[in-house]
Design a protein around this nucleic acid. Structure first.
Lengths: 199, 199
DNA sequence: TTTATTTCGTAACTATGGGTACGATACATG
DNA sequence: CATGTATCGTACCCATAGTTACGAAATAAA
């Protein structure tokens, strides 16, 4: 493309690499158990380099969360928005949630779930983004449920907001079980029973 | 009772007060966000005093978890062991989980759930106790479910271990919603739908 | 009253982690 | 080749938190 030959010393810091490393570490170990220093050791970057790029620890976590959203949340939204019946969507949710992580090279559990659990220990930027994403997730579930209701595929008696919280809770529970070492098949069984409750 | 007139300087450190304060703080704020120094400020105890009594941060957390077990887990076991039909037990679980905390003066959420979420950030003694309690909880659910199955009140098709994980996950989800500010009524609704799935 | 014993609490020590001051470095431009 | 400019990274600062050394204090026994 364009080289944008700027003045000054050329940048060597690899933002993408740092972000990717941060996401994986936060995801695998927990966001509060990974320090800037850890990221430096893993990427070879210097602390001031990271601070120049992300501003603060909070800034890095917030950027990592944003990455995670594209990586793991958007696919969830896609399933909910897809034009398919309620049962098919629920089945897709189950297989998405219980997909094998090792072969894909992704950590167990869910970074977003972890961040929600530690919301108060996070910086303000990250914390507020967590709140936004939580609302975004609930909204996605609600739209999906409303659609299903209108098509007569979902019981209209259950309040939509309660149903959204319900599905979100099931997903969170599955992510936690995964992290605690429960096998995929059992998690899938649990999820199927949970999802059968709403129809 | 007996004075047990010992030699040496009489003990002034109030173990019970420290434990109670620790439980409440861990419960309300998260176990990893409360330092020994915080407990000292709140109780007036000195740091060496606490170390003499509990050995370490890990020791204090472990003792606090033990207190929490008596306070919040035993009542749960009582419900499960009570001689009542499956539906009645489920209703009791719902009202126990969604009981008003403010009037009782107890924090929202569940310390045990919080400790499980941070299991890897805890000391070895506390971490191992968390694992034991998790198994104890699952065992309690399993005995309860097996009993219900034998009385024909619960579908025998669902594997007992999956059902136990299911109920545990619902309870955990409810505790998390409570901590995130969802109102009691909505949580109760969610729980009722969840529990109806198993019968 | 002296000694043995037990607990008390101030004042440290150490490690970790977020954050930055600042001189060195590398490139474009004049 | 000198100058401006943007980035680099070593070495530091500072706050927090777990932990402990050690002398003072308080009581029972000798």
């Amino acid at each position: 493309m364009e080289k944008t030959e700027k003045r000054g010393r050329p940048k060597t810091l690899d933002r993408g690499r740092i972000l990717q490393t941060a996401v994986m570490q936060y995801w695998d170990l927990s966001p509060t158990d990974v320090s800037i220093g850890d990221i430096c050791k893993l990427t070879g970057a210097s602390k001031p380099g990271i601070y120049r790029e992300f501003g603060s620890d909070d800034g890095l976590k917030r950027a990592a969360l944003e990455s995670y959203r594209s990586l793991a949340l958007l696919p969830l939204f896609d399933i909910l928005k897809r034009d398919q019946n309620f049962a098919a969507a629920k089945a897709a949710l189950v297989s998405f949630t219980t997909q094998d992580r090792e072969t894909v090279g992704l950590p167990l559990g869910c970074l977003f779930v972890a961040m929600r659990a530690q919301r108060d220990s996070l910086g303000s930027a990250t914390g507020e983004r967590v709140d936004q994403l939580r609302q975004e997730v609930l909204d996605a579930y609600m739209v999906w449920i409303e659609t299903a209701k209108s098509k007569g595929e979902c019981d209209v008696k259950i309040p939509t907001d309660a149903a959204a919280l319900y599905f979100d809770a099931q997903n969170g529970g599955a992510m936690r079980m995964q992290k605690e070492g429960v096998d995929h098949a059992t998690i899938a069984t649990v999820l199927r029973y949970a999802f059968e409750a709403i129809e």
